[in-house]
Nucleic acid binder design. Structure first.
Length: 480
DNA sequence: ATGTGC
């Protein structure tokens, strides 16, 4: 059993290097209480396994929301040398480019309350939700090719948004060099009917109000004030990305012996980043990234239409600007400083949000001087947060922070311990109206199944990885 | 997360 060594109140480390193997230490960013939870399951052991992957740099990182995942923990970062290291489908996860985006509005809570139910029903009607849910748009194969190659831009070019939407996405909502020829027919078949759908599980669309502002200057730049209404959308690449992950896990597993890679856990299947298989996975994974960005953009379009209809206001009046869109599950090559040398790394963020500090090249002009907006959703009954990438993110976490509250109860345990009416009462008591496709969808996502998001955010804030801008609280939710 | 399990 490995006992984490305390570096300070928020940083713990496990260093199991023996001078022979080429592993790196594990870094855990957490407070004492959060750390204890992690010690009770396989989270830390999974990170130790990751720390032995070929070419890993500095340390395998567990963020404060870290919990067990497929091979790699969810809520973690692993950065590999782009020349000598590996790339791993499990380091991104099944839901490639699951992510969140936040819209502002000119409405305040008083404007919203009288029309809340109408709005939620209208959103539920216009945005497909649930497992296997299909979209209203029927794409042709060639149109999916375009989505794969252009991401958010496809949606904007087809009337589902504006130029500013592109600018305010991580990577402008499109990774270059995605390749449709490396995506299986099976993935095409699953993806075609699903572009523009929310999905199920913890995916949701939430109407919120700004509860409290912590950084007035940043809030002003984002166009939000206390009690103002915002909309948070959380979804990913649906069956399309899921199939791509499955396909390349299989390919990676089969290639292990060819590249003489030994793993502590089969689920960490990986290939050299610069091998044919590595290049193929990256280009197929990029296809799913672009699909997901386009997906969120189409949902944004229907969200704006619903608001315009229910509030009988124009696009110009509602000013539903996209504040930003961030990915939670992604791997890409970024330059980072290791041992005082800037070099390209394959940064795997699995349940982790990019959190670039002010003045970083990749930031749009609007955020250049303050840093990258980061959104951390809590559970459906509790707060979500807006943060800004902080000064220490590049040194501590390869420019990353947490992505959510992190589960403490499994879905099965949640179903066992709570009923639909209990959860609905809990939400109702807090003035939250929910419309869900299924009862299980409500019970499994009960706020009791999640850690306290405020505590997760405090760790990030205190370490100056990403700092507080505003706390948001939910008013209405739609989900699968 | 997911046409939810070999």
């Amino acid at each position: 059993m490995h006992t984490p060594k305390k570096i300070n109140d928020m940083i713990y480390e496990i260093d199991s290097r023996d001078g022979i193997s080429t592993n790196m230490p594990v870094r855990i960013y957490a407070d004492k209480l959060i750390l204890e939870k992690m010690l009770s399951d396989r989270t830390i052991n999974q990170a130790i396994n990751v720390s032995y992957l070929p070419g890993i740099q500095k340390y395998a990182i567990i963020l404060p929301d870290g919990h067990e995942g497929y091979g790699f923990p969810v809520g973690g970062v692993a950065a590999m040398d782009a020349e000598d290291g590996v790339i791993s489908p499990g380091g991104v996860g099944y839901d490639i480019n699951c992510g969140v985006r936040l819209l502002r509005t000119t409405l305040f809570e008083n404007d919203l309350r009288p029309k809340l139910k109408n709005l939620i029903y209208d959103l539920f009607d216009s945005i497909p939700t649930g497992v296997g849910s299909g979209s209203k748009t029927r794409l042709k194969n060639s149109q999916l090719d375009d989505v794969i190659n252009t991401g958010v831009k496809w949606a904007v070019d087809h009337g589902y948004g504006n130029k500013d939407d592109i600018e305010n996405c991580e990577e402008n909502g499109c990774m270059q060099k995605a390749d449709q020829n490396l995506v299986s027919n099976k993935a095409y078949k699953r993806g075609i009917p699903q572009l523009g759908s929310l999905g199920s599980g913890n995916h949701f669309l939430e109407i919120q109000k700004v509860d409290e502002i912590y950084d007035e200057h940043a809030a002003q730049i984002m166009g939000i004030a206390k009690n103002q209404i915002t909309v948070l959308t959380h979804c990913g690449s649906r069956g399309f990305g899921h199939q791509i992950c499955s396909d390349y896990l299989k390919i990676s597993t089969q290639a292990l012996s060819k590249y003489r890679i030994n793993l502590r856990d089969k689920e960490l299947a990986c290939v050299p980043n610069n091998s044919d298989e590595g290049e193929s996975y990256r280009k197929a994974m990029f296809a799913a990234l672009n699909f997901a960005w386009c997906n969120r953009q189409m949902i944004t379009y229907w969200t704006r239409k619903s608001f315009e209809k229910i509030f009988r206001q124009s696009e110009e009046d509602l000013e539903m600007d996209l504040i930003y869109d961030v990915s939670h599950n992604i791997a890409k090559i970024e330059n980072h400083t290791v041992n005082n040398r800037l070099k390209p790394l394959v940064v795997h963020r699995k349940g982790a949000t990019r959190a670039l500090p002010a003045h970083h090249d990749a930031l749009p002009a609007k955020y250049k001087n303050i840093g990258q907006p980061v959104f951390i959703p809590g559970s459906m009954g509790t707060a979500s947060w807006i943060l800004l990438g902080g000064k220490n993110s590049m040194d501590l976490s390869f420019g990353s922070t947490a992505h959510g509250a992190g589960r403490i109860l499994s879905r099965t345990r949640a179903r066992h311990n709570y009923t639909k009416s209990q959860v609905q009462k809990f939400l109702n008591d807090r003035g939250i109206f929910i419309k869900s496709r299924t009862s299980n969808g409500i019970v499994e996502e009960t706020p009791h199944a999640y850690k306290d998001v405020d505590k997760i955010v405090n760790v990030s804030h205190n370490l100056n990885i990403a700092t507080k801008v505003a706390r948001l609280i939910p008013i209405g939710v739609i989900k699968g």
